Amino acid sequence: MTRLDLGPIGVTLGVRADGGHLDDAAMLEDLGYSTIWIVGGQLATLDPLRDVIRATETIPVGSAIIPAQVYASDDVVALRRDLEATDPGRLITGLGGVHGDRPLRDMNAYLDSLDTADPPVPAGARMLAALGPRMLELSRDRAAGALPLLVTPEFTAHAREVLGDEATLAVMEYVVLESDPGLARDTVRESIGFLVRVGGYPQNLRRMGFTDEDIAGPSDRLLDGLVAWGDIDAVAARVTRHLDAGADQVVLVVQPTRPDAVPHAEWRALANALIG
């Protein structure tokens, strides 16, 4: 599988009820971000992926992620079919959200259905939210690559070893542009505290050296290990560590310190520092 040409710096975008995310998408494209990833947990339908692609010009738009236990493969096939007719090559189908006793088997079955659809969703146009070694191997063998979240630069290096040289690795990185340690950590403590108890995250955190006590907190140690916080230079250094460890792209999951704020200022500052 040939690596996707994603560019080094992507960014996530949440869907807003007032439709303001469409203007935000156009702004992010103008700022020079390489890829926009739509936050999948907020998707009541898959329509926002179509809407963001049509609100922008050329930037690739990915799903981060479409949960396979929520959306049937037919929904994914129909979305890609519609967009390939009008905006070919711009949708990156990020898939995940398979939990339960046999997630690897269930994801394989889901990918089988995408392979045999008419038209198919090709392996080179999809990425998997992979953490464990077998899911990373599946990302290498049956997708363009992996889209992990809540990982360290050391994990990035491990993932690159598993994926090899040809697969794509886009690492999602929480970012808080705030130098006060307490405020920076408190900004993400609730959201990360929920995620670290879901699916394969606890097991992967243990593989990365975090303890059950770290996960239960979540502890400052865990937050410092998973989140790029601080001033622009500190965030840039963290991004560089992921890229040096083998990431093709670092996807910025920017969290403003003010609840419910849209991080326009942070997006601009990060673009100026990381993109130029």
Rank of each mutant, 00 (worst) to 15 (best):
D186W: 02
P256T: 03
S73Y: 14
I9G: 01
S179I: 06
T12G: 03
L131S: 06
A146S: 14
L104K: 06
R140W: 03
L104Y: 11
P67R: 12
I232C: 07
I38M: 12
L205C: 02
G145W: 01
R90F: 05
V121I: 02
G62A: 15
L13M: 07
P8W: 04
I53P: 04
M27K: 12
R197G: 15
D260I: 06
D224A: 07
T168G: 09
P120N: 05
M27G: 12
R142G: 09
D244M: 09
V235G: 00
L169I: 05
F155K: 01
S34W: 04
D248C: 04
G199Q: 13
L31E: 07
P259H: 10
Y110T: 09
L177D: 08
P202V: 11
G20E: 05
A245V: 00
V151L: 03
A167F: 08
D112T: 13
L205P: 03
N272P: 02
Q255E: 13
T257H: 09
I215W: 07
I275L: 14
V239R: 01
R241W: 01
I192W: 00
Y33Q: 03
Y174I: 01
I92M: 11
W229L: 04
L195M: 13
A117P: 05
A117T: 06
L195W: 12
G19S: 08
F155Y: 15
G41S: 13
P153L: 05
A25F: 01
D47P: 01
T93A: 15
P60F: 06
E213W: 06
A273L: 01
Y110R: 05
P259Y: 04
T45L: 02
E178P: 09
G225W: 01
D112E: 14
R221F: 07
A64Q: 10
D30Q: 15
P202I: 10
L205M: 09
A157G: 13
L138A: 08
R142Y: 01
I65S: 06
T168P: 08
V196C: 00
R50P: 01
L128P: 00
G193A: 07
A123F: 05
G225E: 06
L83G: 08
V77I: 15
A129T: 10
Q42Y: 04
A44T: 14
